[in-house]
Design a protein around this nucleic acid. Structure first.
Lengths: 191, 191
DNA sequence: GATGAAAACTTGACACTGCCAAGATAGCCG
DNA sequence: CGGCTATCTTGGCAGTGTCAAGTTTTCATC
């Protein structure tokens, strides 16, 4: 069912997916249309729908890819640094580097949020995020683990979305990663 | 024909604005159309555009109203409780109670974000949010005030958006205000 | 290798959208 | 009363998502 060799285009599904991510990066989620993606790929206007069912199906694929990338980024940060704070920084870095994926992921009204593939990828990302709480240095680890996790997730998620919308005040510099590390240090003292 | 409907609606601008908020609450920002709002108000399909210019103009009005409501909610919480944490809780409460406004406010690609009316209202909300940092109990107040403010804002903003998208894990109860108070307590010890 | 089924894609249509230009109507002020 | 302006209507255009039906290619099986 996957890519054996489609005939005219080669790999339309992948091409449309990549074009969608590029279009969302440039013009936001509202600036993407199936017909425009079809034009970019050089196929007829109804070809994309054949692979994704409908527009929500296309965005479902984007979301699934995003949760996969996020899970990888978080586990990588955890294994590389062993620091829960750096997992949070990796979350922010992912949001900025993969803005299109991030914007879709957290707008469940745009896609089929209970798609099994999405659910699985989201679960992996959640596990990766929570896995580092135990490695916290001192007092924090004694608190309710669930609350600490929600607080940390809220902090980095809020920071990322506020940064992306340009809502944050000036004076934080222009490197989101450095700023995120400083802000995360308010919640958890550096190790 | 003996038409009961007068040619002039009387207060179309306000009617469309209210209908837009209701429609966004029900179906999200993507589920609102000028023509549908016109139908609900019983006017022709092009009437709303006369008051708002275009769709972005309508959402600009929604955003401005939202920032006004937010500024009021935050200053009220600050004056009533004197607690910075309760200002944060009020932020979350606003996001849940005025979901439609909140969703529009933080999607600047949908409206004219540099509209002077919006800028003024946003400034009032920011002032209200930051005004309570000085009243923090202990050590926190000695840190970089800007960083503490950004951390607090990020925390409550992230919590609100995650709650609204249904991304948070179960077990936090069904009252967002109580849950927000607990999560905010991780960042700032209760007074 | 031929053949039939299935997958990939095209074509055409429908209802809907935002936006624009031009006309009709109402209230208001001299 | 007569103009004037804001308000609203009408009609049209280009664009969209989605559906149904047809066409072309690939693949599996005989």
């Amino acid at each position: 069912m996957t890519d054996v060799r489609p005939y005219h285009h080669g790999d339309l599904r992948q091409a449309v997916l990549a074009a969608a991510v590029a279009a969302i990066t440039e013009a936001g989620t509202a600036g993407v249309s199936l017909r425009e993606l079809a034009r970019r790929a050089g196929v007829s206007h109804a070809a994309p729908a054949h692979h994704f069912g409908d527009k929500a199906g296309l965005l479902t694929a984007v979301a699934a890819e995003g949760y996969d990338l996020l899970a990888n980024a978080l586990t990588d940060a955890q294994q590389r640094t062993g620091s829960f704070r750096e997992v949070g920084v990796a979350y922010v870095r992912f949001a900025i580097e993969h803005r299109a994926h991030f914007e879709v992921m957290y707008r469940p009204d745009l896609y089929h949020a209970d798609d099994p593939v999405v659910r699985a990828a989201r679960g992996r990302a959640a596990d990766a995020l929570y896995s580092g709480i135990g490695s916290l240095p001192d007092g924090r680890a004694g608190q309710d683990v669930r609350l600490v996790g929600v607080a940390a997730w809220s902090l980095v998620h809020g920071f990322a979305t506020l940064w992306l919308t340009g809502a944050l005040p000036a004076g934080l510099g222009d490197d989101p990663e450095t700023a995120a590390r400083a802000v995360a240090g308010i919640l958890f003292r550096a190790p």
